[in-house]
């Protein structure tokens, strides 16, 4: 009983405390660089789309708000034919970013994306793709993978030997 009265008193004392609320939007909000906000698709250091349309973000998404389809250019490079995020469903959990094997999909510190019309919350690839590399400036998936793509033949990736001639009998 006494503790009830004590907590009444303590809570009452909060009358004289400073308020923690930040008066957004008049006051700027500080967002740490790793804040999970709007989702972007980044490009690799060579300026190509990083996304290889592997679908891992889509399957990792707990609200199933990412949908995409794979396409392939004439030199074997995979890219998303379309890439759609329904932000009216997105919960900004960042699972897609964690699942992404190429650092393509990234969550950035921007949350100001409210709309009056829900349909405007559906972002297509054009809306998502940015010009830069985002948080990981150096990584280029195709420099590591074994597939041959435009500008990188077999055996030219990191840690790769020149292709073998299976008809050779040389040891």
């Amino acid at each position: 009983m006494l503790s009830q009265l004590r907590s009444l008193w303590w809570v009452f004392l909060h009358t004289f405390r400073k308020r923690d609320t930040l008066q957004y939007p008049e006051e700027e909000v500080y967002l740490p660089p790793r804040t999970r906000g709007r989702i972007v698709l980044s490009r690799d250091p060579d300026g190509e789309e990083r996304c290889v349309a592997c679908n891992l973000c889509a399957v990792a998404c707990p609200v199933d708000c990412i949908s995409l389809a794979k396409a392939e250019d004439d030199q074997g490079r995979w890219y998303p034919d379309f890439f759609r995020i329904n932000f009216s469903r997105c919960i900004y959990c960042g699972m897609c970013e964690e699942a992404c094997p190429t650092y393509a999909i990234q969550l950035i510190p921007d949350f100001e994306m409210a709309e009056y019309d829900r349909a405007n919350m559906v972002y297509e690839k054009d809306d998502l793709l940015i010009a830069g590399t985002g948080k990981y400036p150096d990584y280029n998936f195709y420099r590591v993978a074994g597939m041959a793509v435009g500008g990188k033949d077999k055996g030219e990736a990191e840690n790769e030997d020149y292709p073998i001639d299976p008809k050779s009998l040389m040891p």
Binding site: V59, C61, D64, I66, S67, L68, R84, S88, R118, V122
Partner: peptide, 16 residues
């Protein structure tokens, strides 16, 4: 069970 993109695949046509 892991079917993905259910709330996005048709969103371009209608978000409902």
């Amino acid at each position: 069970a892991r079917y993905s993109g259910r709330t996005a695949m048709d969103a371009a046509v209608s978000v409902h």
